[in-house]
Amino acid sequence: LKKVVALYDYMPMNANDLQLRKGDEYFILEESNLPWWRARDKNGQEGYIPSNYVTEAE
C-alpha cells in the first residue's frame, strides 16, 4: 500500500470521510476517485480524504 503524510488537518464533511492530522501517516487503499482517495489511518479507521491534503511518505 502507498503511504502518505498529511500536509494539513482535515475535518470530515460527512460520515464517509476520514479525519486527517498534519504529520500523521495514512495508507492509501484506492486512488481511482480523484480528488478523493480512500485511506486508512494508524487506528484502522477508513474513509475518504482530499488527495491534495497529503504527500507521498519518504
Rank of each mutant, 00 (worst) to 15 (best):
S51D: 03
L18W: 02
D17N: 10
V54E: 02
Q19D: 04
Q45W: 08
I28S: 01
P35K: 15
Q19N: 07
I49W: 00
Y10I: 03
D9T: 05
K42G: 09
R21C: 10
N14K: 12
Q19T: 10
M11I: 15
N52L: 09
K42T: 10
N43I: 07
P12D: 02
I28Q: 02
P12Q: 04
G47T: 01
A15T: 12
R38Q: 06
L1F: 12
I49L: 06
E25G: 05
A6I: 01
V5C: 05
Q45P: 02
V4P: 00
S32L: 10
R21G: 03
E56Q: 11
A15V: 12
L7H: 04
S32Q: 08
L7F: 03
L18S: 00
E30L: 07
L1K: 07
V54H: 01
A39Q: 01
L7Y: 03
L34S: 15
W36C: 10
D9P: 04
T55N: 07
S32K: 08
G23M: 03
V4G: 02
P12N: 04
W36F: 14
E31S: 13
P12L: 02
L34C: 13
L18H: 01
N14D: 10
N16Y: 12
G44F: 05
L1I: 11
V5D: 01
Q45D: 11
N52H: 14
D24H: 13
E58V: 15
N43Y: 14
S32A: 11
I28P: 01
E58M: 13
I49A: 02
W37D: 02
G44P: 00
L20T: 02
Y53L: 10
R38H: 09
G23K: 02
Y48V: 07
L29C: 05
F27Y: 14
W37F: 10
A57Q: 11
D41R: 02
Y10F: 12
K22S: 07
E46K: 03
M13Y: 08
K22H: 06
G23D: 07
Y48C: 10
Y48W: 15
K42Y: 07
K2M: 07
D9H: 04
M13P: 07
E25F: 15
P12I: 04
D17V: 09
L18N: 00
E25S: 11
Y53N: 03
R40V: 11
K2D: 02
D17E: 15
L34A: 15
S32G: 13
E30A: 09
K3W: 09
M13E: 12
N16P: 05
V4C: 06
Y10T: 04
D41W: 01
L34G: 15
E56R: 09
V54S: 01
E58R: 07
S51R: 13
L20I: 05
P50W: 09
Y26V: 04
